[in-house]
């Protein structure tokens, strides 16, 4: 006769208490679980935000990388350009140096020619002086001879008068 309360849906008080305890435990556990779930959800939101932030940072990094690559390419391009310019400048410099050497050689040559010209000029001037002096001598001699000739002719004319020649 022990089974009739169960049949009637009745449970003994001890069972009821146990069940009540189980229910309370289950509720408590459900509450904990709900809290945990809420925490997880909150964490999930944080992580999601972090993930989004990281994603943003990643994008920024990718953009920066792209920009750096672009800049790098530009720098490389500039470097190539500078290199070409440097080469050009080097060639120009070599050309200028060659020209400078040529000019230096020309200058030395000109200096030598100038010195030779100066020497020639001095010699020419001296020779001109000598010629002028020689002309002075010739002119002096011509004048003296002219004077002597006139004197001689005058004397002869005088002699002619004495000898009866008409003057």
């Amino acid at each position: 006769m022990k089974r009739p309360p169960r049949i009637l849906g009745l449970v003994p008080a001890s069972g009821y208490d146990a069940l009540e305890e189980q229910r309370a435990k289950a509720e408590s556990r459900a509450g904990k679980l709900a809290q945990q779930l809420e925490e997880y959800r909150a964490n999930s939101r944080v992580w999601k935000t972090k993930a989004e932030d990281a994603l943003g940072e990643l994008r920024k990094a990718q953009e920066a990388t792209a920009a750096a690559q672009k800049q790098f390419r530009q720098i490389e391009k500039q470097r190539d350009e500078h290199s070409r310019n440097a080469q050009k400048l080097k060639e120009e410099l070599d050309k200028v140096r060659r020209l400078q050497q040529e000019r230096a050689a020309e200058l030395a040559d000109l200096k030598q020619r100038l010195a030779e010209s100066e020497r020639d000029l001095v010699i020419a001037r001296e020779q001109l002086m000598a010629i002028e002096v020689k002309l002075d001598i010739l002119e002096g001699a011509a004048n003296v001879l002219d004077g002597r000739t006139r004197e001689l002719l005058t004397r002869r004319s005088g002699l002619g008068t004495e000898s009866g020649t008409a003057v």
Partner: peptide, 13 residues
């Protein structure tokens, strides 16, 4: 001789 031009020389010569 009255004139002896050979005896006039430039200083350089």
């Amino acid at each position: 001789p009255m004139v002896d031009l050979r005896r006039v020389v430039s200083a350089g010569l």
